[in-house]
């Protein structure tokens, strides 16, 4: 096969995946047993410092900002709801939003890593969705990488004086999308294509995961704006104590 032919075949594969003709556009967490052991351990290890930081931050919330605990529970519950909703997407398959971005811009990304792993554990143990061996990798993508991107975008938007709601929308939707990009990279690295290596298979997984996720990311962003409008109207006393309003109100370091 010449290079041109190879590229042509690759392109056709991507097109097929994008338009959902081949029906192999499934997009959610990495399945149980589908990640080689060394990667499982690697991602699991990376998660530990974030989780530790999250536990410390939650402890601080419990001790010094008891008032915000209901809000914290709501953010965890929000992630719980959203990750149960499998929404049809334009590629012809379904996926679900993550719901971790909203909590990240209110309580900080580390706190969400703890709430996120609870959601993932529930789904892995009871629903056979995701898995215990791939828990580390899924936690890294959904509960660490996504929330950190959301948080970073929200802080940047605040600094640039972008409209607050636009900031919330961008932060939560891009964070959601980023989660699935990370999943694609994780799978691509674990399964390098014989033809094009890891890069080729990352592209393949991107076509499966990220494209499906685009409309869902938009939905997640819009929904987050709705929730934030509600919270601003009724829970400003609690929001005042969170990093949503003030940087460093709840220490996040």
């Amino acid at each position: 096969m010449t290079r041109k032919e190879k590229n042509f075949i690759k392109l056709s594969f991507v097109m097929a995946a994008v338009f959902g003709v081949t029906q192999n556009t499934y997009a959610m967490h990495i399945m149980e047993g589908y990640l080689p052991l060394k990667y499982c351990l690697f991602y699991g290890a990376i998660c530990l410092p974030f989780l530790a930081m999250g536990v410390v931050n939650i402890k601080k919330l419990v001790n010094e900002h008891r008032k915000t605990l209901l809000l914290l529970a709501m953010m965890g519950a929000y992630a719980f709801v959203l990750s149960a909703l499998k929404i049809p997407s334009v590629t012809g398959s379904s996926s679900h939003p993550t719901g971790t971005g909203l909590g990240a811009i209110i309580f900080g990304p580390c706190v969400m890593s703890v709430l996120g792993i609870i959601v993932l554990l529930f789904q892995a143990i009871l629903l056979a969705h995701g898995g215990l061996t791939t828990l580390g990798a899924n936690t890294f993508s959904m509960a660490i990488a996504g929330p950190f991107v959301s948080y970073g975008i929200f802080v940047a938007a605040k600094k640039l004086k972008v409209n607050r709601y636009v900031g919330v929308f961008l932060a939560t939707s891009i964070g959601d999308l980023f989660t699935y990009c990370v999943t694609s990279v994780q799978l691509g690295v674990a399964y390098p294509n014989q033809v094009g290596g890891a890069v080729a298979s990352i592209k393949q997984f991107m076509a499966v995961f990220a494209v499906t996720q685009i409309p869902l990311a938009i939905i997640e962003g819009l929904l987050a704006v709705v929730v934030v409008i509600g919270l601003e109207a009724y829970a400003s006393r609690e929001l005042k104590e969170t990093i949503y309003v003030k940087r460093g109100a709840i220490i996040e370091k």
């Binding site: 192999n24 556009t25 499934y26 049809p88 379904s94 298979s201 393949q204 499966v208």
Partner: peptide, 17 residues
């Protein structure tokens, strides 16, 4: 389309690779 759930087709890609 049946809007199938999302765990299986990544499996398909993996078996393909």
């Amino acid at each position: 389309s049946e809007f199938g759930g999302a765990d299986g087709a990544a499996e398909e890609v993996i078996t393909e690779i």
